[in-house]
Design a binder for these strands. Structure first.
Lengths: 339, 339
DNA sequence: CTGAAAGCGCTAACAA
DNA sequence: TTGTTAGCGCTTTCAG
């Protein structure tokens, strides 16, 4: 009762036709190659009967197409990336592609190793959140004309396809929202990495407070600091800046650190401070207070990424570079209301 | 400046040796096949020089090994699964395997489609959280002697490798913890699906309350209910069971629904009710109150899964079925302390 | 110790 | 309209 794999040759010999005929029929080229209806039907019926499935591997070897795309993010266990991954997965499978997910931890070395690994595997396309130092590797992919889309951030001076959100606009709006709600001393907690998206977020904040002539109160936390250290830094910051009445966390893990510090060290602040975070999480909705968040349009991002990718996958030539900028949405919850 | 792919043949002809020799050397069989040191070195040096990487696809076609394993969960965007995925990813890549993640939404049809898809791709092994109706499909894989490990849940009467946690023990302990903290009317909110893990959780709860002669107060929510409906059901439940002083949520999305309902409809309850949830989330720690949780040992689960998988991948014959049961850990936080 | 050659399953140019 | 055949790049048996 072992299920045995059938090959195209088996089919051909069983039906007394040639493998070519079978191959054409399987690949839907029956019409084009003008194979008789009768033969086509016979072959199709037989294929169905024995439940034949072409060996993808052989197909890939022959065509050079693996029907696999890579989706590389910082950390797949991070809520934001996991959500994206799920949506990408659904679209890809529907289109006959499989997705290899991987995490680069925002490290150049890891990113490069992973990309090298995938190149040996003839992956068809890459959707990547680049770590900051892999411009060279990305450029190589580009030079080799491999379908590639960056997202979340990109390299200013490299003509790549990318999908990002308007980070500056998003923080500008969110900061203005805080200002409208009468917060006067709004702190902005971010990291010290020079990633385009983080820089834009910072500049949106600066623009907003600048326009209203408020103080800039910025805390840059070293990217490589461990959670404990990050928390210590935030704690000091709170102690040293008692005038702060609202905090804008520029990315989700900083929000976690921040709330944790406040909860442990200054519990009364939790209801007094204005809080906004970048990137939503379903749990923020049921926090006490519920946390206002700048939410990236996940579906839209993934939809755009995949439709661009599929386009790239189709015709390899004369592609124009596409740069897409989407808008984030401010979800106003309790934490940013006037106190 | 195009990077061209080198083949084993190129190497052979460039060095005036045969492809066989090169192949043997590449595969570390130089010694075994007693190829001269000199040739070996020469080949190795050249390979290094041109940065040759074997074509995995061709290798796979020939050997039947794709070096890819499948990791199928309910929903990769779910915190628990995303965390697992990340750990699995790290181990797999280190061992030279790549991981295809996918989500079956706990649907049989989807699971079956996915498995069929992967079989055409000669995936080397499967790590699966099975949806309840795919026993047949799983059995097929088993019959074909394909490396397979189930986890989170399994089929009682199918001799498969699996890794699960002791769900009954975990809820028993956690319920006892509530009882020790003087909660008298502990409700257990679960789903109506007959999955082994959910049933065990329920029975652990029942055992605990039974031993102390407390009332069983169980709410089973239809698995397919939409969030809105789940919330409505929970709301009714709270209204109709005013005596309840503690709630044990059997899985993480129910916790979210539950807290959401409490927050919206009965905010004062949030600090009065004892709460425990199954499956941890980093954010529970910074909730107000922080939420006590039964945490599954993620690292241990993944470590076990992968070491079992690697063992299966190595020697295909005479494998004993391995059943591993690990222990969960109760993380006591504010929500389950005496009120 | 090394090489020739078959063949994994499929596609597609070329023949018939 | 259909068949023959040459590979894709690699592994491995068998023969030197």
């Amino acid at each position: 009762m072992k299920k045995q794999r059938h090959s195209i040759k088996d089919i051909a010999s069983a039906l007394n036709v040639s493998v070519t005929t079978v191959s054409f029929i399987i690949n839907g080229k029956a019409k084009e190659k003008r194979i008789s209806e009768k033969v086509t039907k016979k072959v199709l019926a037989y294929i169905d009967e024995i439940n034949y499935k072409p060996n993808q591997l052989a197909q890939s070897l022959r065509t050079g197409q693996s029907k696999i795309i890579v989706f590389m993010v910082e950390d797949i266990s991070n809520y934001f990336f996991a959500r994206l991954a799920r949506i990408i997965e659904d679209i890809a499978y529907e289109k006959g592609y499989k997705v290899l997910f991987c995490s680069n931890d925002n490290e150049d070395k890891k990113s490069e190793e992973l990309i090298a690994l995938f190149k040996d595997r003839q992956v068809d396309g890459y959707i990547i959140i680049p770590s900051s130092g892999i411009k060279g590797t990305i450029k190589n992919l580009l030079d080799e004309n491999i379908p590639l889309i960056l997202f979340d951030r990109y390299f200013e001076d490299l003509p790549t396809n990318y999908v990002v959100i308007d980070n500056e606009e998003a923080t500008l709006n969110a900061t203005n929202h805080l200002i409208e709600n009468k917060f006067k001393n709004i702190a902005f907690v971010t990291t010290d990495v020079e990633q385009t998206q983080m820089l834009s977020r910072l500049s949106g904040y600066k623009k907003a407070v600048g326009q209203k002539q408020l103080h800039e109160i910025v805390l840059k936390i070293p990217y490589n600091a461990k959670p404990v250290n990050r928390k210590a830094i935030i704690k000091d910051f709170i102690i040293n800046n008692p005038e702060v009445d609202a905090v804008f966390f520029a990315t989700n893990y900083l929000t976690q650190d921040g709330i944790s510090v406040i909860k442990e060290g200054f519990p009364s602040l939790l209801s007094k401070l204005g809080i906004i975070t970048f990137d939503d999480n379903t749990l923020y909705e049921i926090f006490t207070p519920s946390i206002s968040a700048v939410a990236q349009p996940l579906e839209e991002i993934c939809g755009t990424l995949m439709s661009m990718m599929l386009k790239l996958l189709k015709k390899k030539e004369d592609q124009k570079v596409e740069k897409v900028v989407l808008n984030a949405k401010l979800l106003v919850r309790e934490s940013s209301l006037p106190k």
